[in-house]
């Protein structure tokens, strides 16, 4: 028994750590079935399906969700395009200014969000630009960009240059080579970068808080609700997000497994 314990103590500790990390998600899910006694959904009262039956039954929650989805979609599109281009430049070419480029990409990832949010907000204030949808979009592209570069660059660096040379030898034009060979190989990296950008943008609160004006994203809605009262609908949407994301991960995993099993064509 003691021997078994000694062999598995790290595994047991790991499971405990995972439990610590998963506990809040379980609480969020359980409390989505609560019928809170009062405005705040912090203590258990009674079981109810009301929030799940009417997930948008709170003023403003649906609009905030739509705004968040719009911003996440657009900022993912822009950040993925710009970030992929940077990743190709870094992964493919020698050029002057590499150090500066790397530093400028690293800094946003290493800066506390509150600093980035406050300084960008200060810029908009000084330029007398009104806060709203577009300022949030600009901010989100800014902080998602570096993460896309990291994801795509790893893939570009791992690419075998011989494949492109082979395409060229077979008389493929540069455009054909790029569209038929380079892009498909880089696609998983680009996809990973895009997914990362989407989830970062969708979940961002701190930077958004400084640049949103009257525009309310879903995290801004939750922040406001924490002061006014937290309807269980927040938990419903939080749990639904969780299940959707898990489904996306599982589908993606199954697809890559199937691809790996198929003989290379």
């Amino acid at each position: 028994m003691t021997r078994w314990l000694r062999n598995h103590v790290i595994t047991l500790f790991g499971i405990l750590a995972l439990a610590y990390m998963t506990l809040p998600n379980i609480v969020v899910l359980v409390f989505s079935f609560n019928n809170p006694n009062g405005k705040f959904n912090y203590t258990w009262n009674e079981f109810s399906l009301d929030a799940w039956k009417d997930p948008f039954g709170v003023a403003g929650i649906k609009d905030s969700l739509i705004t968040s989805l719009e911003i996440a979609f657009l900022s993912t599109l822009i950040a993925t395009a710009l970030g992929t281009a940077i990743a190709f430049a870094l992964g493919r070419y020698r050029f002057r200014g590499r150090g500066f480029t790397n530093t400028l990409l690293f800094l946003p990832m290493s800066m506390p969000e509150v600093v980035m949010g406050a300084s960008l907000g200060t810029l908009f204030l000084n330029m007398r630009i009104n806060f709203g949808f577009w300022t949030i979009l600009i901010a989100h592209v800014m902080f998602c960009l570096s993460f896309v570069v990291v994801a795509v660059k790893a893939r570009v660096l791992g690419m075998d240059p011989k494949l492109e040379e082979a395409a060229q030898d077979l008389y493929a034009s540069p455009t054909q080579t790029f569209l038929r060979v380079t892009l498909p190989i880089a696609a998983p990296g680009i996809g990973a970068g895009a997914l990362l950008a989407f989830s970062l943008s969708f979940d961002d609160f701190v930077i958004t808080n400084f640049n949103s004006g009257d525009t309310v994203t879903f995290p801004m809605f939750v922040w406001g609700a924490a002061q006014r009262g937290t309807p269980p609908q927040i938990n419903v949407i939080g749990s639904a997000m969780f299940f959707i994301a898990v489904a996306v991960v599982i589908v993606g995993q199954v697809r890559t497994n199937r691809k790996a099993k198929r003989p290379a064509s």
């Binding site: 809040p24 969020v28 409390f31 609160f205 939750v222 937290t230 939080g238 997000m241 898990v246």
Partner: peptide, 17 residues
């Protein structure tokens, strides 16, 4: 996976815990 739920919602859960 826990990251998939908005971090504000998860932090609120600690008020309950």
């Amino acid at each position: 996976a826990p990251f998939f739920t908005s971090f504000l919602v998860r932090t609120l859960a600690w008020k309950t815990i």
